Simulated assay, not measured.
Amino acid sequence: MASQLKLEIVTPEGVTTSEMVDYVTLPGVEGEMGIYPMHVPLMTQIVAGEIVVRKGGEEYLLAVGDGFVEITADHVSVLTDMAIKANDIDEAKAEEARRRAEARLQEKLSQEELAAAQAALARSAALLQVKKHSKRT
Results as ranks from 00 to 15, higher is better:
Ala63Glu: 02
Gln118Trp: 08
Ser110Cys: 02
Asp66Pro: 02
Ala116His: 08
Ser18Asn: 13
Glu95Cys: 00
Ala48Cys: 10
Ala120Asn: 08
Met20Cys: 00
Gly49Leu: 14
Tyr23Lys: 03
Tyr23Leu: 07
Ser110Leu: 04
Arg54Lys: 12
Ala86Cys: 10
Val24Lys: 09
Gly34Cys: 07
Val130Gln: 11
Ala120Leu: 03
Lys131Gln: 04
Val10Pro: 04
Asp66His: 04
Ile89Gly: 04
Glu112Ile: 06
Thr44Arg: 00
Ala117Asn: 07
Gln118Glu: 13
Ala63His: 09
Ile46Gln: 06
Leu61Glu: 09
Thr80Phe: 11
Gly57Ile: 10
Asp66Leu: 05
His39Thr: 05
Arg99Tyr: 04
Gly34Leu: 06
Arg136Met: 07
Glu102Ala: 04
Gly49Thr: 13
Lys135Gln: 11
Lys85Tyr: 03
Ala92Asp: 00
Ile9Cys: 06
Gln106Arg: 15
Ala119Asn: 15
Ile89Pro: 06
Ala117Glu: 04
Gly31Ser: 13
Ile51Ser: 13
Val47Lys: 15
Met33Thr: 08
Gly49His: 12
Asp22Phe: 10
Leu62Lys: 04
Ile35Leu: 09
Lys55Ile: 03
Met20Gln: 03
Glu59Ser: 08
Glu8Phe: 00
Glu58Asn: 15
Ala94Ile: 09
Arg99Glu: 10
Val53His: 10
Val21Glu: 01
Val40Met: 13
Val78Arg: 13
Pro27Phe: 06
Gln111Leu: 07
Gln118Gly: 01
Phe68His: 14
Pro27Arg: 05
Lys108Cys: 01
Ala103Gln: 05
Val78Asp: 00
Leu127Gly: 10
Ile84Thr: 15
Ala120His: 05
Asp66Glu: 13
Glu102Leu: 04
Arg123Leu: 04
Gln106Met: 09
Ile71Asn: 10
Thr17Glu: 04
Met43Asp: 10
Val21Phe: 00
Lys6Trp: 00
Ala86Lys: 15
Ser134Trp: 15
Gln111Lys: 08
Lys108Thr: 06
Gln45Asp: 12
Glu112Thr: 08
Met82His: 07
Lys93Arg: 15
Gly34Phe: 01
Asn87Asp: 12
Gln45Ser: 14
Gln129Phe: 09
Gln106Phe: 04
Arg123Ile: 05
Thr137Tyr: 04
Glu50Tyr: 13
Ser18Pro: 03
Asp81Arg: 15
Thr16Phe: 01
Val64Leu: 15
Leu61Ala: 13
Lys6Gly: 00
Gln4Gly: 08
Ser77Asp: 03
Asp74Gln: 13
Ile84Arg: 10
Arg98Glu: 14
Val78Gln: 05
His39Cys: 05
Lys135Met: 08
Gln45Ile: 14
Val10Trp: 06
